[in-house]
Amino acid sequence: MYNFDFEKPSTIADAVSAMAAEEAQALGGGQTLIPTLKQRLASPSKLVSLSGIAEMKGVCEADGGISVGGATTHATVAAEAGAYPALAALASNIGDPAVRNRGTIGGSLANNDPAACYPSAALASGATIETNSREIAADDYFQGMFTTALEEGEIITNVRFPIPEAASYQKFEQPASRFAMVGVFVAKYVDGVRVAVTGASEDGVFRWTEAEEALSGNFSADAVEGLSVSGDGMISDLHGSGDYRAHLVKVLTKRAVAAAS
C-alpha cells in the first residue's frame, strides 16, 4: 500500500470536512478498498473512516419502509432488517461472516462493483440513496460499472427502502470470488414489479424491463418463460460466457419469483 493519512470522525459534518482534502477517500468497511490498496491500484492521500459515526449506523422502520444507515454492516442488516426479509437474506449471504462484520451498505453502493449484491436490492426496490447533501433515486444513482452519481467528497449517509409486498434475491456465485456471477432481485410493489440484475452486465447493475412488464401482469415464474435475455453486453470471462450469464438471468428471475415472500 502507498501510505495515507487516517482520520476517523464521529459526525457526518466532520467526515464531510475531512473529505475536503485533495485525494481524500471515504473508508466504509474496507472489504473492497483495502485489497485494492494492497495491489497499489489506488493512492488516496487520506482515508476518512466512517465506522465511528453513530448517526450513520443501524436499521429503523419508517413510512412503510426501512432506513439503513450508510455505515451499517451487512451483519447488522441481516440481523435487524426483519421488516424486509429479502434484504436481510441478501445481506446474510454477502461474502463470508468476517466480511459481513466489516463491510457496509454505503461502501458497497459507493463502490458499485458490477458483481456486488446490494446494488440489485437498491435498484429493484427503487431505494433512495441519501447523502450528506441530497437524495438520489436508485434509478439515477447507478451509472455503470464502478460508476455512480456520487460527487467527489459525497458520502452515503442513509439508504431508504420501500418495503415490497413480496421479494427475493437469488444469487449464483462465481466459484472463486463468491461474488455474484449473476444475482437477480425481484420486488413486487403495489404499482408494479421491479427486477434488477447484478453480476451479469458489462454496464453493471441493470433493470430487466421485459420481465418487469411480464411479471407486473402475472407474478409467476411462467410469465418469464417466453422471454429471452441477450448475451450481448454480458460479461464473458473464465467463469462463463455472456450467453451463460444471460441464461442465468432468466433462471434466477424465475427462482426469485417462485421464492418471493
Binding site: 466459484p175 472463486a176 470470488s177 463468491r178 470471462d237 473464465l238 467463469h239
Partner: peptide, 13 residues
C-alpha cells in the same frame, strides 16, 4: 494469467 488470485482461482471451501 487469468486466474491470478483467489478472486479467479476457485478452490473448494
Amino acid at each position: 494469467l487469468l486466474s491470478a488470485s483467489y478472486m479467479d482461482y476457485a478452490m473448494p471451501r
